[in-house]
Design a binder for these strands. Structure first.
Lengths: 225, 225
DNA sequence: AATAAAATATGATATTAGTCATGATTTATT
DNA sequence: AATAAATCATGACTAATATCATATTTTATT
């Protein structure tokens, strides 16, 4: 099993602020896991006994609305932590986490994280900055949901995925989402998401290869109204 | 000028975790301000040089959407802190803050807060918990925006204000919002907000006394579809 | 008190997005 | 390879909400 001290992934998240000692202690109590595409990492309401450090893959965080539809609130990729919020609030999770492709994660027990938060102000400040960033992103999503059309939201989602999660060698978006997932990010009906994607295709903004989507006109997409 | 050590307001926010020493230092460098209803506390893009501790009154935090409409993202009341997020991210504010009624606030300089965050793990953890709570609320708003109707969102807003900000002796909501503000919370056109309120009135769910709104049937409101 | 300005209210109409139905593809399973 | 199941796609129709127009009422200003 890999050692946290030497793991390059931690550079991308708050774990980088831990001391060598703290990292060694975490290394000795963490467990590595492989998670298959589609697998549920945790459910809404689950009590989390630690955080996950995502070494590879992507997952979606969603919440079930009262009308029975899932709303994707955030996507977590390689390098990020998963589950900090519930841990810090000492509450059960308000979100469900499902793997969007095969994942490699390390599970770090709660006790270790909490101890480090209380001892190491640098780590704690780093987690705080992470959370502040998430909160800002959430604010932006609220405004978009409230004020923009489905078309605009879907265009922005494509751009976001393109910019943040990258593309395959052939230029298609590397994170493969179903049309239902897109609908669930944008907050619309699956049929509406499909329709809008079809329209983008007709307008030459994107092309599709099976389920894969390739952005052909980033500028055009960003100007969608 | 009041002393932070003796101020009861701090019980309601993370400042309660500061030591007597830290509070005395803050007390000596803070400034008290009175802010009139409608006054802008800070603008989107402003660099904040500290946080505000709200001693009295309520303000709205909003963000200007690209279509020119303001979206209210959160309301901050007596007892809460204002401006922590930007301070922690070390970024300019992503939101505008406007007083909804006359306010009493204390302004605490950035340097002091940052120093305390770095020295006092208890304080830092407390701020972290606050932020985690805000993030959870933001998640809920995203889901509501995406999945619920204007009618449902407005009903929930009324209930939220009723439960969190209280009522006047005559039972009307103590926070007085314009119809435009309601629209801006719910994310709809002002006319739509007005229409829905009229409908609630016809259905006996609320009554209005001028601008004031009184919830007559809390149960009914929570069952709106 | 008179006037102007702003906020509230409501109708008519247009636009957006949701729902239901149905068919075509793609993917998984036997 | 054949079948079943899931996903994607599109049409027809409906419901929700936005927009524009115009009163009415309330609040601010002279």
């Amino acid at each position: 099993m890999g050692k946290c001290e030497q793991c390059i992934i931690k550079q991308f998240n708050s774990l980088k602020s831990l001391t060598k000692d703290e990292l060694m202690r975490i290394s000795s109590c963490k467990t590595s896991k492989t998670i298959k595409k589609g697998e549920v990492i945790f459910e809404e309401g689950d009590t989390l006994n630690g955080v996950y450090c995502v070494k590879d893959g992507v997952c979606k965080l969603s919440k079930l609305s009262e009308n029975g539809k899932d709303q994707i609130v955030k996507m977590v990729v390689k390098g990020q932590l998963l589950g900090q919020r519930s841990l810090i609030s000492n509450e059960s999770s308000n979100l469900q986490a499902v793997a969007l492709n095969d994942m490699e994660v390390c599970f770090i027990p709660k006790s270790e994280i909490i101890a480090d938060l209380q001892k190491n102000p640098k780590f704690s400040f780093d987690v705080l900055q992470d959370m502040a960033h998430d909160l800002k992103e959430a604010d932006d999503i609220i405004v978009n949901m409230a004020q923009k059309s489905v078309k605009q939201r879907l265009a922005e989602t494509l751009i976001y995925i393109h910019n943040n999660f990258g593309v395959n060698p052939d230029g298609t978006l590397s994170v493969l989402l179903s049309r239902e997932d897109y609908a669930s990010i944008v907050g619309t009906a699956t049929e509406s998401a499909i329709r809008v994607l079809s329209q983008f295709k007709k307008e030459g903004l994107i092309t599709t290869v099976g389920k894969f989507i390739k952005i052909e006109d980033l500028n055009g997409l960003s100007r969608v109204e």
